[in-house]
Design a protein around this nucleic acid. Structure first.
Lengths: 343, 343
DNA sequence: CTGAAAGCGCTAACAC
DNA sequence: GTGTTAGCGCTTTCAG
């Protein structure tokens, strides 16, 4: 049976209140007593019970990483991992303890963010994988006084910060890059139809196409739920109703979609980039292992996570919510071929 | 301010005890009152405070996933993700709530497993990424009455289960496969020197080599900490002191090491598998995206996680600790070339 | 500087 | 069936 604060108090010959003060680095404990208490605690192998501490303490200090839909689909993918790493990087730098909680669509419909915070005594959280298609939940965020940080979403309410990149500009740049390489017939392998990130990237694609006098028709857009397998099937299906020369490049909204696309192309006997060019998005490390290495937008995901945790930390210290837009980088690699006549 | 059990009691016109019983599905509450209470709870948006519940409750019900060294090196990699997915798969199937905690080497040296359990009121946990090089911690596990499940380690103590695969046999099989393909000059790209998994796989390699009258000398073993980058450097360094024809195949102890090895080989202008064959280990999905696709041992990692969580669950119900050995599969792919004269 | 005591929100034993 | 009450281990006033 592990030691409680009572045991330490007894062993050090003081009251529990004094032990508590000593353990929490209060200044109003004499150096001598503190030393005695710390030694007793050490000797007994005492560590405070987190539940009791949280229950009695007024000030919420706990911060959390909330993984939404961790079990559905391909959630908990490479993207999320990097995000988590970033958060932990910040936490360990600051000596913070971040708790992790998983929620799913069902929970989100039944329990507000505020309730979750109450349940776990959270001061605030970084929310990963949240979908705007859960309007109720987003509303609950807006109303809540516990701050939170969202990734790649629009801020809602006074205590919600977001960290994102300029997806419109990034996708515009990627589209322009393909166009510069001579591609006119482009198929878009898109994400979930009403996801924020999908719409923004779509806007970027349209913007670039229009600027170049091109147009993107509906039958040249393949919607997916960001699953590799869907890209694979979607691309194969595309060729069932379109001739091979109706397209020269596949513009994908994620690296995993690009991988699925390349798979599909290879399965049809085509070669990348000889027959078709393919681009990704996210900048996952694995785009450098693939054959060919994939041209992509490097979002610098880990930094996104780092900044998210930092933002939360700052909000907890009283700073206002904000929308942080991080830079991105276009990584030009072998999956795109220049098809301009000139060369 | 969220509702407490008091508020619900007041709203439903009953005592807190009755609310507690109703919320916890006790049978000794009349259907009518239960209904009234549930409605009141719903209306007030009540959800029990986890801290208070855990503090007051005698029976520990919480189970956790403990990520050891989540922040160091490449921990939190694809392997761990799949393991986590497996755990969550089981949890969501059983309707269990798994909390996640991260610990690092420092914490492990200061705080025993028992203390951790006490701190978070844990009934037991699945421990991921634990290193035997933390002897103190492993001892603390052995002494503790809270059950736990380890991955790829040997069981220690009465309440420690493990789930693993037969690494000796698996690595033997892989080595034999290379030998069957005509490879006699093999370089081993190994993991951390005294890691359990490294030693087991090493034993498998020796076993197969000896059986075939081959021998593995020290200068043909490259030790790493399972980091891709180390394989990259190690392989390049190998060629500085050995002629190109001193080796025909690289036998790697993980898929990431195989990727690093292939990178190094490519950087030297060699091609895989034309010039050198390379094998991986783990069966990560990304070995199917690489160029070439990597021959590997599929550990079925997600199932490992699933079984680990299941084992923990069963131990909590009184079942004895056990050592579970799962099957594996050799996935033959393009990274190995047959160099027998016959073909 | 330190001790005493009042809770934090909940569960579980015990009455009725 | 339901109410009452004693804690769970800790923090935090409030005295002294």
């Amino acid at each position: 049976m592990p030691a409680t604060i009572q045991d330490v108090a007894r062993a050090a010959g003081v009251s529990v209140g004094t032990v508590s003060r000593a353990m929490n680095n209060y200044t109003d404990v004499s150096a001598k007593t503190r030393e005695r208490i710390l030694q007793a605690a050490q000797r007994l192998g005492y560590s405070p019970n987190v539940m009791a501490r949280n229950l009695s303490s007024k000030h919420l200090k706990n911060i959390a990483l909330i993984l939404s839909g961790a079990m559905e689909e391909e959630m908990f993918n490479h993207f999320d991992i990097m995000l988590m790493r970033g958060c932990f990087e910040f936490a360990s730098k600051k000596g913070l303890d971040i708790s992790i909680h998983t929620i799913d669509a069902k929970i989100q419909r039944e329990k507000s963010y505020e309730q979750l915070c109450y349940e776990y005594n959270l001061a605030g959280a970084v929310l990963m994988g949240l979908k705007v298609t859960e309007p109720y939940y987003c509303e609950s965020l807006a109303k809540c006084k516990q701050p939170c940080v969202l990734i790649d979403l629009e801020p809602v309410g006074e205590y919600v910060s977001t960290v994102t990149i300029d997806h419109v500009a990034a996708f515009d740049e990627m589209t322009q890059y393909l166009i510069d390489k001579g591609h006119r017939k482009i198929v878009l392998v898109a994400g979930r139809k009403n996801a924020m990130v999908t719409m923004e990237r779509l806007a970027g694609a349209y913007q670039a196409m229009e600027r170049n006098g091109l147009c993107l028709t509906g039958d040249h857009i393949i919607y997916t739920d960001f699953l590799k397998q869907e890209a694979y099937c979607g691309v194969r299906r595309y060729f069932e109703s379109h001739p091979p020369d109706s397209v020269t490049a596949f513009l994908c909204m994620s690296d995993m979609l690009a991988i699925g696309t390349i798979d599909a192309l290879k399965s049809k006997g085509y070669r990348v980039p000889r027959d078709y060019s393919v681009t990704g998005y996210d900048g996952l490390e694995l785009t450098t292992y693939t054959d060919p290495r994939i041209t992509t937008i490097d979002q610098n995901i880990q930094q996104k996570g780092y900044e998210a945790a930092k933002l939360l930390f700052e909000m907890l210290e009283g700073r206002r919510a904000q929308r942080l837009v991080l830079p991105y980088t276009l990584r030009k690699r072998a999956s795109v071929r220049n098809i301009n006549r000139a060369e």
